[in-house]
Amino acid sequence: MGTTLRAVRALILLAGFYLLGFVMLGVLVAVDWAVAEGGVGSVTAKVWIVSALLAIPSCRACSRCARPRTNRRPAYS
């Protein structure tokens, strides 16, 4: 496999990771909206809590992968 194909594959995998995260967040928002339109207060609150518990780790994972590491050791020469 050439260098170009490896680079393209890496970009596709990286974009797929973020796309999967955004799709999951979109589905959570759609479910929250559908339940809120239903009008049952206790069920709406429970669904929102579960959605928040699922969305927070997803957002944290996306932000941690995008951040460069600052605590790397210096290279040995």
Rank of each mutant, 00 (worst) to 15 (best):
T44R: 07
A75D: 06
L20Y: 02
E37Y: 08
I49F: 09
G38M: 12
P57M: 12
S58Q: 05
R60D: 06
G41P: 14
R60M: 08
L28T: 08
C59M: 14
A30K: 01
L53G: 14
G39S: 07
A7S: 01
E37P: 07
V27D: 00
A55V: 10
A34H: 09
F22D: 00
V31D: 05
R67E: 13
A75T: 12
A7K: 09
F17H: 14
R64C: 13
S51G: 15
S42Q: 14
N71W: 10
G16I: 06
W33N: 11
T70Y: 12
E37G: 10
S77K: 13
W48L: 14
L25H: 04
A52M: 15
A15R: 01
E37W: 11
L53C: 15
C65G: 13
T70F: 10
E37S: 01
A34N: 03
M24D: 06
V31F: 04
W33P: 00
G38A: 15
D32G: 10
A30R: 01
S77G: 13
A36L: 11
A52T: 12
A7L: 03
A10R: 11
T4C: 00
A10N: 11
L5V: 01
G41S: 10
A34T: 06
A66M: 10
S58I: 13
C59Y: 10
V27R: 01
V43C: 11
M1Y: 03
A36N: 12
S58M: 04
N71Q: 15
V35N: 02
T4G: 00
R6I: 02
Y18M: 00
Y18E: 01
I49M: 11
S63E: 05
L11R: 03
L54H: 03
D32P: 01
R6F: 02
V47G: 01
G16M: 02
A10M: 06
V50R: 06
A75G: 03
R69C: 10
G39K: 15
V29L: 05
S63N: 09
P57F: 08
L14M: 04
R69N: 13
V47A: 07
T70H: 07
V43T: 14
E37M: 07
A52W: 15
V50M: 10
L5Y: 09
R73G: 15
L54Y: 07
V35F: 01
A45R: 14
S58Y: 02
V47I: 07
G39V: 13
V50H: 05
R9V: 11
Y76G: 08
T44E: 13
P57I: 13
F17E: 12
C65A: 12
E37C: 03
